[in-house]
């Protein structure tokens, strides 16, 4: 073999060869400062660019609110209008999730008071309020809800918020028209006190 003369022996080599060692000195504080600054920058970056880690936020949209704000539709779309009314009046108790608060405010999402054929009872509750014990989805609730008939002066707003509640968070019920809202409002004009659960249950669900 021609290569034979070139053979060398590792024994000799290894004896000379030393493995590298390690100096150990503390990491400069500056690096930790940079790391902290980077972490701060990262948080800020995620705050503005990560869309709140929401699964519905893609591409040019910055947040979930922005996506829902630009959904197509007329300015008089009852769902948009209703959402505005809901935000200013109903949200403090029933929450943006429509789930209410356990033990205090009953849920609207999936509620058996909401998901019925007509909005008659809902309209009356919103206009005059509700007091005394009430059963929602088989669970009893006590407490009182004031009437908002005066606060929601326009029939269109009233109908819109009912429509919004009846078609959000998985609820799928019929639309409430401004005419229905006007009719119920005129019927309950001189009532002046909140409804109770048995009274409402005696009424039909649909506006007549």
């Amino acid at each position: 073999m021609s290569a034979k003369p070139k053979k060398t022996v590792h024994k000799k080599k290894h004896a000379d060869e030393r493995e590298p060692g390690v100096h150990q000195e503390p990491v400069p504080v500056l690096l930790f400062v940079i790391l902290l600054l980077l972490a701060f920058w990262g948080m800020m970056y995620l705050h503005t660019n990560a869309g709140g880690f929401n699964r519905y936020v893609y591409g040019p949209f910055e947040s979930y609110a922005m996506v829902s704000d630009v959904q197509p539709g007329s300015s008089d779309d009852p769902m948009k209008r209703g959402a505005d009314v809901y935000k200013s009046i109903c949200l403090p108790c029933h929450q943006s999730s429509g789930l209410g608060a356990p033990g205090q405010f009953p849920p609207l999402a999936g509620s058996d008071w909401v998901n019925v054929e007509g909005p008659n009872r809902m309209l009356r509750i919103v206009i005059n309020g509700l007091s005394g014990p009430v059963e929602v989805n088989g669970q009893s609730w006590s407490g009182a809800m004031p009437g908002f008939g005066d606060l929601i002066a326009s029939d269109e707003d009233l109908a819109a918020v009912i429509t919004y509640v009846r078609n959000s968070w998985g609820n799928e019920a019929s639309v409430c028209t401004p005419e229905e809202a006007a009719l119920v409002r005129s019927e309950s004009a001189d009532r002046g006190r909140p409804w109770s659960s048995p009274e409402l249950l005696n009424l039909s669900v649909e506006v007549q």
Binding site: N49, A50, F53, N54, Y58
Partner: peptide, 9 residues
């Protein structure tokens, strides 16, 4: 075509 947070993270 992924939610924004994936690319930002």
């Amino acid at each position: 075509s992924l939610p924004s947070w994936v690319g930002s993270l």
